[in-house]
Nucleic acid binder design. Structure first.
Lengths: 339, 339
DNA sequence: CTGAAAGCGCTAACAG
DNA sequence: CTGTTAGCGCTTTCAG
């Protein structure tokens, strides 16, 4: 049987209430007694009992706020799946979730959501929105009030959030490069497509992709921006395909592949060009099935959702700090046969 | 606030004890009352409170037995890591684990372990040992006594285990084939190495590998068995490399790659031959780093450990049957850049 | 500043 | 066959 609060109380010659106060950092205990209790807890290697704690919290469940893009953004469905999985495991363990859907491109919506959640009594927040000064300030304010924030999928850098759960963008770019080198034995020309080089994620991927290819015989002929708009992407890629008729491969640093696929098909290059992609949106899945896309690099969104909620729970409930500021989810590779 | 056992008792006009009996399938309740309670619970959508249940079980924690190969088999370290991760989350939730290490090639050790565990009062068992009649019988006997068994990593087929958690072997073979087709544009000759075609796992991988390559221009020149012994593998592969000087690639359906790597190096083929491998034993990691191995196909052992314990817990504690008899872990692909 | 006691929802042992 | 009751370990009033 493991050690309880009651044993500590006995050994310290105080009541359980006092021990509770000390162990949970509540004020109002004579420093001398506090020290004594801490020492005993330490010596006995006290570990609070999760079930008991959760049960007691059932009177006033801990509220966790979740700020993320609306349901229409299908990419987040997977993340939500992961959150639900964690929620399922934590059901009846003294928490309740409150979702706030925001337009994650509008900075102040995120900031406002945080404030609302705090006003509603949230004890912790999961946050995914644009990396903007307004959000940074809002997060830091939450932290100062003792409300931990975990960012997921897209980070708000240099904010005081407990940690970020998401993809290792550098690795993602390097893997793309690695895949290219496996497909081409000698010289080759590849094109890179991003949504916008202003996006931190895409910039990072491209940067590491390039760096990794310096020592190789693979030449990057161009980096084009499609702004994740079908028309722009289609038109620009068409031009590029004409401009570089001897192109060997394409790296799509963005997950939106619909227009690319169509352009490649139109040019009659389907199956000839080697294509590496990101994520698993429906178009990408289709592209893999048709043999148009060779590889896609995953950021494991389900894991992102699951881990972020678990981490926040452990933090609030067990006071367990995440072991690293950056919690990277697996960067795995898929091919058609993986589907 | 969610519905409790007490409300059900009130509505049914009985005591909480009776409700508990019914809800937990214990005998000794008049059928008529049982029906009534069940109906009410159903109507109210009763969900038992995990924390309360776990806390009550703290008096007499539920014992879960774990039968697996000894610590010397390093492959299982990863699986154990996953089990520990799950254990960590379930700490204080009313369970205690008991490990039994066995030689998983000796059938009766597994069977005996099951019996010992049951005698010691285990309420559920995680099992990983050779697929043998003795084990099948022993598992089925446990099930008949109401003690659920979950097999992991290597299945005992057609036993009454609740489910198997491990790799989708067919997919693993198909992915290997898919990778080959991505590396070779035209005709190519590849060699397959297994430990033993008597191993179900290796037979399956090879079978699906072959089937997937039928429509391709890739020819499988031979399948050699190395029995996971360094000497045998090294010698046989040496011969093959001489016999097929124009070989293009190798598929190692086994995870033991040390001898293969050495033979390839000796033949001066390092970097020329395209190699696809399984798992991430130290030799494989080294091979990837040196650029000798192109791809390795993972079965996510950590996930295997984690999921099997979680599933068993949910089964025992929440009565939640696994949604499928085969719980496949991700079959992901790694390259050097993934490390 | 500290102690006492009630209660979170469920289980199990003991009466009846 | 069914009701009663004493916990499981922790939090949180309410007194003092």
């Amino acid at each position: 049987m493991s050690v309880t609060i009651r044993e500590i109380a006995q050994q310290a010659g105080v009541s359980r209430g006092t021990v509770d106060r000390v162990l949970n950092g509540r004020s109002g205990v004579k420093p001398e007694i506090r020290e004594r209790i801490l020492a005993i807890a330490d010596r006995l290697q006290y570990v609070p009992n999760l079930a008991a704690k959760a049960l007691a919290y059932n009177r006033k469940p801990i509220q966790i706020g979740i700020v993320m893009p609306p349901k229409e953004i299908s990419f987040f469905d997977e993340i939500r799946k992961g959150i639900h999985a964690a929620e399922d495991e934590l059901k009846g363990l003294g928490i309740c979730l409150e979702y706030v859907y925001i337009n994650n491109q509008l900075a102040d919506e995120g900031a406002r959501a945080i404030q609302t959640l705090i006003a509603n009594g949230a004890s912790g927040i999961l946050f995914s929105a644009i990396d903007d000064e307004v959000n940074r300030v809002s997060i830091d304010k939450a932290i100062e009030q003792g409300i931990p924030v975990v960012t997921f999928n897209s980070d708000v850098e240099n904010s005081k959030r407990s940690c970020f759960v998401g993809q290792d963008l550098g690795k993602s770019g390097e893997i793309a490069a690695g895949l290219m080198t496996r497909m081409f034995t000698g010289k080759a020309k590849v094109l890179v497509i991003v949504a916008n080089m202003k996006f931190h994620a895409h910039r990072m991927r491209v940067q590491y992709f390039k760096e990794k290819l310096i020592q190789s015989e693979i030449e990057i002929v161009d980096v084009i921006e499609g702004y994740d708009r079908y028309d722009d992407t289609f038109r620009k890629l068409n031009e590029s395909l004409k401009m570089y008729p001897d192109l060997d491969g394409i790296y799509m640093a963005t997950g939106h592949a619909g227009a690319c696929i169509d352009a490649v098909k139109l040019a009659g290059k389907g199956g000839h060009l080697r294509i590496v992609c990101n994520d698993l949106m429906p178009e990408v899945e289709q592209g893999l099935r048709e043999g148009l896309i060779d590889f896609t690099i995953m950021q494991n969104p389900v894991q992102q959702g699951y881990r972020s909620l678990r981490i926040l729970y452990d933090l609030i409930f067990n006071g367990k700090q995440p072991d690293h500021e950056f919690q990277y989810t697996d960067t795995s590779i898929m091919i058609a046969e993986s589907l």
